[in-house]
Amino acid sequence: MTTITAPRPHQPPAIVFVHGMRTSSRIWERQVAHVRALGHDAVAVDLPAHGTRHGERFSLARSFEVLDDAVASFGPDRPVVLVGLSLGGYTCLAWAARRPANLAGVVVAGCTSDPKGKPVALFRDVARLVVAGGGTLARAARWSARTSVAAWGTFARGAGSVPGGADTASVLPGGTVTATTAHRPGWGIVTDALSQLAGRSWLPHVRALDVPLWLVNGARDRMRLDEQRYLAAAADAALVVVPGAGHDVNSEAPDAFNRVLGRALADFGRGRGATLGA
């Protein structure tokens, strides 16, 4: 007697959300709820040195292990979509460039400017002084740090947002900025992250992608500098600019971001070779 095995039902891709620098998985609460309501499984991870992993040091290699584990948690054959903001976006692009077989698509925000040049180097070097210094040196470094953070923050976000959570408050879902008792990574994460990111171009990672890529930026985010280059480098990409939002686009304009995310997930379900509808 021949046994006929019924085909496995189609499962929508699972979603892995990756946060920005000096914040945590908490920033994705509205997005996790939204995609679950659409029928997707989802998890928001904490990168090394953040949230539940605050005891670790940040590195891209360790971040890749975190993503490996998150993706594997959905099963070996489950298609997966990555969604990343800022540092999380750069991490997602680098991880996706390894072309994992079950990756269905990538959505990144606030990471379409190559992290290089004097502003990034200054931010990184001042952070090193804060971590290592003592006495007069430490006081001078802390003063320089405050000045540099203000200048870099203004550059990154335009106005009114917190770049990747790198401020003295936390951005909660809905764009509300409040004080929090949750662990907030210190300056060590800045030195570790920028030492690995600074001076490198992420365009080769974009060119290596063999899945659709959606770039989402807030209109006021000054880290959009290279968005057209990123768009042109990708084989299959769309760019969406959210009016009125800054660097933390998912927290500042959660409803708009969720609509874009829904469109991206629908796009990732299309047949390969179809034309992207931005």
Rank of each mutant, 00 (worst) to 15 (best):
E252N: 05
T52Y: 06
P7E: 03
V120D: 00
L203I: 13
G188W: 04
V242T: 10
L209V: 05
T191F: 07
T181Y: 07
S148R: 06
V177C: 02
T136P: 09
D167S: 13
D125N: 14
E56H: 04
V216M: 03
L261Y: 11
P13L: 06
R62T: 05
H247M: 09
G188A: 06
A182M: 14
F58D: 01
L172I: 03
K118T: 04
R98N: 03
G89P: 04
A151M: 15
T136L: 10
P254K: 06
P12H: 14
Q11S: 13
G158H: 04
P13R: 09
D167F: 09
A208N: 03
R259M: 13
G199Q: 11
A72N: 09
G174E: 15
P243G: 03
W214E: 08
R263V: 01
P173N: 13
L215W: 04
K116A: 15
G158P: 04
G160C: 07
V171Y: 04
V108W: 00
P185S: 07
R22E: 03
L103G: 02
Q31I: 05
A264V: 10
P254E: 02
W143D: 07
V171N: 08
K116G: 09
G55S: 10
W214G: 05
T191C: 10
T168P: 02
H10F: 15
T52N: 05
R22F: 04
L276D: 05
A238C: 14
R98W: 09
V32K: 07
Q31R: 03
V260F: 10
V171L: 13
Y90L: 09
A33N: 15
H10K: 12
T136A: 12
I4V: 14
T112E: 00
G218R: 00
V83F: 08
I27Y: 02
R30T: 14
D221E: 12
P115S: 11
G262I: 12
T178Y: 06
A141D: 08
T176R: 13
G174P: 10
D125I: 10
V206D: 01
R36N: 13
L265S: 04
M1N: 05
A42L: 11
A109E: 05
V177M: 11
L38T: 02
V107Q: 02
G39Y: 11
A278L: 15
W202I: 01
W187R: 09
A33W: 10
D192A: 14
V81R: 07
R259A: 08
A233G: 07
R124W: 03
G244R: 06
G84I: 05
T168V: 11
A208F: 08
P48R: 07
N217L: 04
R128S: 14
V81E: 02
R30W: 10
F123I: 03
W187M: 07
G160Y: 00
A278N: 06
R53F: 00
H54I: 01
V108S: 06
S195M: 05
S195P: 10
E65W: 05
L103H: 08
V126W: 13
T191E: 15
G153H: 12
T191L: 12
